[in-house]
């Protein structure tokens, strides 16, 4: 479970100017559910995802992660977890690497290397042996129908294939949660629906899914358990989907 308690994120632009991207947000995301953050551009969706995904720290408030196993914290039944907002960068990296899988709007794949190597990249610094990682990457490629592009450089792939490589990369370290920021922004309706089907399968396998999107295909999806509407950094609406 991920619990945000009165989380605020303020960016200081100059000594006299600051900008509050997320303003006093409290939210609980249950394990194994799909949560959609919707709202117009600049509403704070991406910043909220970055806060939850331990990519940045909140200016105030707490982000509790429950049921997350790390080298510095061993979860026990009934434990309320730990507050990720006060952890040093080293621990945040570890959580980011092992707990969350990220899918970015621009896919953020590295050009010039193969799809397989792109998928394996997040596992390199973990010190896991390459043959083991490679085997897992190949299984993911098979799952997402990418095996024939195994050794192709990513710039040869189509938009839908790039999207699937990005999903496979997000899954390589077997994370508990998948965080996707505007994942369908560069996809047509058909590919967007296919993406949602893939994400639905991940949810079914027990992954917690968190998506920021202003695409109706995403926030109207029957797969969503919770749709959070944001505007100007605040939550303005929250509805259990369907």
């Amino acid at each position: 479970m991920i619990a945000l308690q009165q989380v605020t994120k303020t960016f200081t632009i100059s000594p006299t100017t600051s900008f509050t991207a997320v303003d006093n947000v409290s939210l609980t995301i249950e394990r194994g559910t799909m949560t959609i953050l919707k709202g117009p551009s600049g509403s704070g969706k991406t910043t909220l995802l970055a806060l939850i995904g331990c990519m940045t720290r909140p200016s105030s408030g707490r982000i509790m992660l429950q049921g997350v196993e790390t080298s510095f914290f061993h979860a026990t039944d009934g434990s309320e977890g730990f507050d990720s907002s006060s952890l040093p960068e080293r621990f945040l990296t570890e959580i980011r690497r092992s707990t969350f899988g990220f899918i970015f709007q621009q896919f953020n794949l590295i050009k010039g290397i193969s799809a397989l190597q792109n998928i394996m990249l997040p596992a390199y610094p973990t010190g896991e042996q390459q043959p083991v990682v490679k085997q897992r990457a190949l299984e993911l490629m098979e799952q997402f129908d990418l095996l024939r592009h195994c050794n192709s450089p990513v710039e040869w792939l189509s938009g839908g294939e790039l999207q699937r490589v990005a999903i496979a990369r997000a899954l390589i370290n077997n994370p508990i949660a998948i965080i996707a920021d505007e994942p369908t922004a560069h996809l047509d309706s058909q590919l967007s629906n296919t993406f949602m089907e893939s994400i639905g399968l991940l949810k079914d396998s027990g992954k917690t899914v968190l998506i920021a999107s202003h695409d109706p295909i995403v926030y109207n999806s029957p797969l969503a358990d919770l749709v959070v509407e944001m505007r100007d950094g605040r939550i303005v609406g929250m509805e259990p989907s369907l």
Partner: peptide, 23 residues
């Protein structure tokens, strides 16, 4: 120790492929 060595090997491997990318 084993993990540290593997990490070095993985990163060296990627460094070599990075060098080849910008031939």
């Amino acid at each position: 120790m084993h993990h540290a060595l593997s990490r070095h090997r993985n990163i060296l491997d990627f460094a070599l492929s990075s060098l080849l990318r910008r031939k």
